[in-house]
Write a protein that binds this DNA or RNA. Sequence first.
DNA 1: GTCTATAAACCGATAGAC
DNA 2: GTCTATCGGTTTATAGAC
Lengths: 187, 187
Amino acid sequence: MGRDKPRRIIDTYVNLLVDSGVRQATIEAVARRCGLSKAGLLHHYPSRAALDAALLERLRSLVEEDVTVMREAPGGAVRYYLASSLDAESDLERIVVAATRLAQADHSPAGELLRWARDLWYDVLVEQLGDPLLARFVLLAGDGVSYHTDISTPNEQPFITADDIDSFTRVFETLQRSEGDGRQTLA
Amino acid sequence: MGRDKPRRIIDTYVNLLVDSGVRQATIEAVARRCGLSKAGLLHHYPSRAALDAALLERLRSLVEEDVTVMREAPGGAVRYYLASSLDAESDLERIVVAATRLAQADHSPAGELLRWARDLWYDVLVEQLGDPLLARFVLLAGDGVSYHTDISTPNEQPFITADDIDSFTRVFETLQRSEGDGRQTLA
DNA sequence: GTCTATAAACCGATAGAC
DNA sequence: GTCTATCGGTTTATAGAC
């Protein structure tokens, strides 16, 4: 315990990015939260770019892991994706938000990786739903959930609830069935 | 022409926030793009906080204007909201993105204003759809569209197209009708 | 590996001339 | 209104001791 320092540094960097934004997420702030000096941290990651790269590498591995779980999810990929988007405290969701912050700060590798992740999730949804348009619909809803979770505050009552997710999931299931029946609700 | 300098400054600030992020959107960078020195800009807006406040005030007035247009939109509020979300080049959409950047940089007034705007749009949707759950569904889809437009690059083919928006709008219209008929697809 | 000290660049803001 | 010059503070990164 407490031995994997690089890991702890990245986690702290993610937390700072998510909770306080790119401006506050300085090397010194990360170091202080880890009980280190600036130079002490720079020994592990010799530059800010190295810190960013490590964060993205961790995101990459978490996404690959998540996609396999999503593919086998008992309640189906749709429910899994929507519910995941609502869980703002999960490691994956937090690091996705952190990467979004970096992407918005003109950090193009972060944007590329986020689009790569989106395509993976999209492929799983197309696979299970059998309809690209419906898959995009689900993806939009999930990412809308992430956005609203992101701009919400802890003290206000949540705009989207777990019950909502349940309802939306059932709607998508209904839409999928009606597609299969030849009743073209979509397209 | 060229006489409303404060307006030009805010527009430039918005562009920098959207295209390059909070870190690059410095007072000096805004000033340079306006052909001004730092002190020259600070004559119009005496601090960065004043610049932020002016941006938010402009957002507030654009939202109020947009809500009235949305309420009377010929194709309905749903189509209007979804289509607006896809138009990343509109003044409103760009300033919303800019405010999101500020909110994510721990600027709480920006977050408050964004939630206020969300509630206004939400009210119009509830009004027209007669179903809060369906209204939230539309809102999520629209904000998902904004997110994907945001992380996309000019050179890649767009993930969501105008045709998609058209399909989603029709799905929502179908869902609304089936609700009216008592066929509970939702809830 | 971790520290103190410091360099070099940059940012927000002010002073004062024009 | 706009400028140059500058102050005080911050940020990334390096040098060198322990």
